[in-house]
Design a protein around this nucleic acid. Sequence first.
DNA 1: TAGTTTATCTATAGTACTATAGAAAAATCC
DNA 2: GGATTTTTCTATAGTACTATAGATAAACTA
Lengths: 211, 211
Amino acid sequence: MAKRKSKTAKHEPSSATRQRRRAEIIDAAAHIFARRGFHGASTQDIADVLGVRQASLYYYFPSKEVALEMVCARGVEGFVEAAISVTETPGTAAQKTAGLIQSHLNPLRDRRDYVNVFLNERRHLPTESRRRIGRHSRAVEKIFQDVLRAGVEDGEFRADLDTRLAALAILGMVNAVAAWYDKERGAPVERIAQEFAALVLDGIRKKSSRR
Amino acid sequence: MAKRKSKTAKHEPSSATRQRRRAEIIDAAAHIFARRGFHGASTQDIADVLGVRQASLYYYFPSKEVALEMVCARGVEGFVEAAISVTETPGTAAQKTAGLIQSHLNPLRDRRDYVNVFLNERRHLPTESRRRIGRHSRAVEKIFQDVLRAGVEDGEFRADLDTRLAALAILGMVNAVAAWYDKERGAPVERIAQEFAALVLDGIRKKSSRR
DNA sequence: TAGTTTATCTATAGTACTATAGAAAAATCC
DNA sequence: GGATTTTTCTATAGTACTATAGATAAACTA
């Protein structure tokens, strides 16, 4: 009679269908949060997207903040996975740098709402989850920085390079794409990645006019 | 007896002291908006900073949205003025590019709250003022792009440079500084500007290892 | 198909926020 | 110092939003 799956929950199964529905709701939340911002979005807005009543969302989530956390998590995970995938493939530091730029732009195209919410709304997370997300974020920064440092150490990159500043510069550059990227009409991410990699590796100056 | 300075206002002078008080309030608003975001901030929060009652703010501003507009305006103006000042000084395209980077970082240090609100909250402005702010923003982009194009045309920069993408890349890079810059403990903006300019002009790759 | 579980609905308590009205106080003017 | 103007205050109307409680409906199980 008494089942003992979870200690406290009264009636909250965790079937596959339930997980699927949760994902749909997170998706709607990502959409709304990306457009109106966390505090500017109401749970009613999210419910409207799904065609259900506002209160129904609370069958799946304990609070709006938890929904934000899940959106941010999926956003940052995209970046983490992209960066890790590059570290796992062999190549020169220059190739890896170009790879990091390219890979970072993929989630930006494929999970745009999630990524934008992560970038713009994570600061509105409650302290604890903000820290957790922040750790992932810093892990990405570290991967960028490590690639640059390796490049300096093996003489491929300039010896005087400040790898921390350079990593932040590159990340700022690629993250900014989220603000203006247009899937329909703009250049494809491959194009952007190529241009950015060229800029980062060799700069905009013509070789012949170098001092 | 009847004074005719403004047609509709009942009792709203525009003396210098009033303007000074307005500026104080905008400053408090910038501070709060930067920290909590526009929708996450309440007019009560702003009043608390100033040590006055929430309703007193409405003697100076007709709405919270108008306060946001003034903060954003002052933020973007900093960038516009910085960029214009560079176009007015002579120099090579490379020098101007470095100048744009340096100048752009100044308001970021001196008007940090305003700049951050402009960057992160302008999308919550009502349509009309968002357009107005957007025009200023695009004017800055145009200045960056024009400098790059001039550099390409006189052979100083690579002929295959996509000046639009490069301009957006550079702006993304410098704007991102607003998110992590630490006045107290981090590197001074001059240092950052130098490192960024080097990256943009000549890249991170060591010259000898160029193909 | 009766019983049980899962999902959504209605209704609302409780809270918070913007903006307005009008009184009071402070500053300024003559 | 009395009148006038400027500034801030108290009080609140009106609205919106999160989250909970409990009632139904739909889906599943035996």
